[in-house]
Design a protein around this nucleic acid. Structure first.
Length: 396
DNA sequence: ACGTATGATTTTCG
DNA sequence: CGAAAATCATACGT
């Protein structure tokens, strides 16, 4: 058989030892496309081990068999292949859906990251059962072919036995050879199947390849947390778990998200301004609603009240700094901060553009605009401090 | 088709 | 080791 998942071409079912002739058995099978492009990382679980072995034993194996002297070794490799196929649910009990076994196998061996189920997995299972089907079909075909061929040879021998004496030993040897060859082919089939499964797995389990955006709700939740903890957007382990649960993603994904978000926010605060305002307003509203009658349930145009609070000022300064910087095309030089700030004060226009109500904080803009450096900046010469309301959020 | 957004991974750093 | 920064690879909107 050999069905290979080629990233661009989809499923290719190639090579198939249809008309069997001895020559064909000996020549090496073509059509196994082993490189699949840019796959750099090895797949997580132990499955990747196939790599180190003589995974693509195809040609070499056939050649060695051609020598035919080779007594069949117990072949640990074959056993490994068998085990893997079994583990993957490919060679296991025949089942139409096959989903249960496959899913179980995938879940068990996948372990870590594979937890975002449903859609992905059904696709995965579909492909897997496809592999499996091909595998079984081919296997059967081989079996049948082997039998046919054997009887054919037997007949020939029998016929010849009339003209010349043929020892039973010779027959036996002949049969042995045939069987060995067929089993070697079978092994190739298994190898190819293994490979296909692995590639499949790598495609589906390697989340980087099959990246899916989080759904709207999840990003809402994450953003909500982020912007309401803008002063310290580092959720604790527990908080992460909570978020993960609420968003139906893993804790690692939450960490990733926050990592990305922090860095990207910091990098270009201007771009996130709108979003920030939005969420700030939202949390403000919800806070107002929660606490008491919202007398000042401001309109979205006057955002940042409660939640963002202290940090927001700081961020704004950073924001302006960066904005000006980018506008000026200036390079990033902390020494110029003062000048820049001056410029900022001159360029009132931006304040509107950014819709930031309270402008810059005179607070030092630490060159990295960082969260980590100035954890409690807000107090000094506070610029029109927002309501000191502690965000009680934890929007359960 | 192409540019941007975005989740994930890798590397660097404290 | 956790976070930042850099980078990758894909998704998604145009």
């Amino acid at each position: 058989m050999v069905a290979v998942w080629s990233p661009s071409l989809g499923w290719l079912g190639l090579v198939f030892f249809g008309g069997l002739s001895f020559d064909m058995l000996v020549c090496s099978p073509e059509g196994m496309d082993h490189r699949h492009g840019t796959h750099r990382r090895e797949v997580g679980g132990g499955v990747g081990e196939l790599e180190d072995g003589r995974m693509m034993g195809g040609a070499g194996l056939v050649l060695s068999i051609r020598g035919a002297q080779e007594e069949e070794p117990p072949d640990p490799q074959l056993m490994r292949l068998d085990n893997m196929l079994l583990a993957e649910g490919v060679s296991g009990p025949e089942k139409g859906g096959g989903s249960a076994a496959a899913a179980a196998a995938a879940a068990a061996s996948g372990g870590g990251p594979g937890s975002d189920n449903s859609a992905e997995h059904s696709d995965y299972r579909a492909k897997l059962s496809q592999i499996r089907q091909i595998y079984h079909t081919e296997l059967e075909k081989y079996e049948q072919a082997c039998n046919e061929f054997t009887t054919h040879v037997m007949n020939l021998l029998r016929e010849q036995s009339r003209t010349r004496p043929i020892s039973p030993k010779e027959i036996e040897r002949m049969v042995g050879i045939i069987h060995r060859k067929f089993s070697s082919i079978q092994m190739q089939l298994k190898q190819s199947t293994c490979e296909a499964v692995m590639i499949l797995r790598s495609r589906f389990l390697d989340a980087r390849r099959k990246r899916r955006n989080f759904n709207k709700q999840a990003t809402e939740i994450l953003n909500e947390y982020f912007y309401s903890h803008l002063s310290n957007p580092y959720p604790s382990e527990e908080a992460k778990e909570e978020l993960a649960k609420k968003c139906a993603i893993t804790v690692a994904q939450v960490s990733n998200w926050f990592g990305n978000k922090r860095i990207r926010y910091k990098k270009n605060i201007g771009k996130f301004q709108e979003e920030a305002n939005m969420y700030a307003a939202r949390t403000a509203v919800s806070a107002a609603n929660a606490s008491s009658h919202g007398s000042q349930a401001n309109s979205p145009s006057t955002p940042n009240s409660a939640g963002s609070g202290a940090s927001f000022n700081m961020s704004n300064s950073g924001d302006l700094f960066m904005t000006v910087q980018s506008l000026n095309g200036d390079s990033y030089q902390p020494a110029q901060v003062d000048t820049l700030r001056h410029v900022i004060s001159q360029t009132g226009g931006y304040s509107e553009a950014l819709s930031a109500s309270q402008m810059y904080s005179p607070q030092a803009i630490n060159a990295n605009g960082g969260w980590q450096d100035a954890p409690t900046p807000s107090s000094v010469t506070s610029p029109t401090e927002g309501p000191g309301s502690v965000h009680s959020d934890t929007s359960n």
